[in-house]
Computed example of a mutant assay.
Amino acid sequence: MEQDKDLPLGRMHPLRGEAFALALSIETIRRARGRSNPRDFTLGSPQWEQVSLDFARDIRWALGMNDEDDEPEQ
């Protein structure tokens, strides 16, 4: 079944390849630093959840974002 290009990162979406390359880059960097990746654990396990959150922080770092970006402006 062919997916619509307008669906969020569907199979034919042009940004899907870039998102995949970013995720693979983050996995490689984490592995080189001796850190685990989400795929190293059973989906839904406590370890998977913790590593997934850490992985998301690394993606934010790679995109130039940080925790201060989430704080409301005063």
Rank of each mutant, 00 (worst) to 15 (best):
G34Y: 11
K5I: 11
R11D: 07
Q74H: 12
S25V: 00
L15K: 04
E49A: 14
L53A: 13
Q47Y: 14
A56S: 14
R33G: 02
R57W: 05
D70Y: 15
R60H: 03
R33S: 02
E49Q: 15
A32F: 07
N66F: 05
F20Y: 11
P8A: 10
N37P: 06
R57K: 09
W48L: 09
L22N: 00
I26N: 01
P38N: 02
L43F: 15
A23L: 09
A23D: 05
I59T: 15
R16L: 05
T28G: 05
M1I: 10
V51W: 10
R30I: 03
I26D: 00
A21I: 02
F41E: 07
A23C: 12
A23P: 04
I29W: 05
K5E: 14
R30L: 14
R33A: 07
D4N: 08
E2D: 07
N37H: 12
I59Q: 12
L43K: 04
R11E: 10
G44P: 06
E2H: 02
L63S: 03
P8Q: 00
D70F: 11
D54S: 11
N66S: 10
R60F: 06
P14V: 15
D54C: 02
R60G: 02
K5C: 06
E2R: 05
N66V: 01
P8Y: 12
F41S: 08
P14K: 14
G64M: 10
G64A: 07
F55P: 02
Q3F: 09
L9G: 02
R33L: 06
G17M: 01
D40W: 15
N66G: 14
M65P: 04
R16A: 01
D70V: 06
F41P: 01
R16H: 02
M12Q: 14
P38I: 04
E27K: 10
A32K: 09
Q3D: 09
G17F: 03
D67F: 08
A32Y: 13
Q74N: 11
D67P: 09
S25H: 04
G64L: 11
S52L: 08
S36R: 09
E49H: 13
W61C: 00
V51R: 03
T28M: 07
E18V: 00
E71M: 12
H13N: 15
N37A: 11
E2W: 03
I59A: 12
L7W: 12
R31D: 02
I59F: 13
A62Q: 10
S45M: 08
N37G: 02
L15S: 12
S36C: 07
P38A: 09
M12L: 12
E27D: 01
Q3R: 11
W61E: 10
G34Q: 13
D54P: 04
M65N: 08
D67K: 13
D69Q: 01
R33I: 01
F20I: 10
R35N: 05
G64C: 13
W61K: 01
H13C: 01
S25G: 10
M12T: 10
E49L: 15
M12R: 09
P46V: 08
P14D: 14
G64K: 08
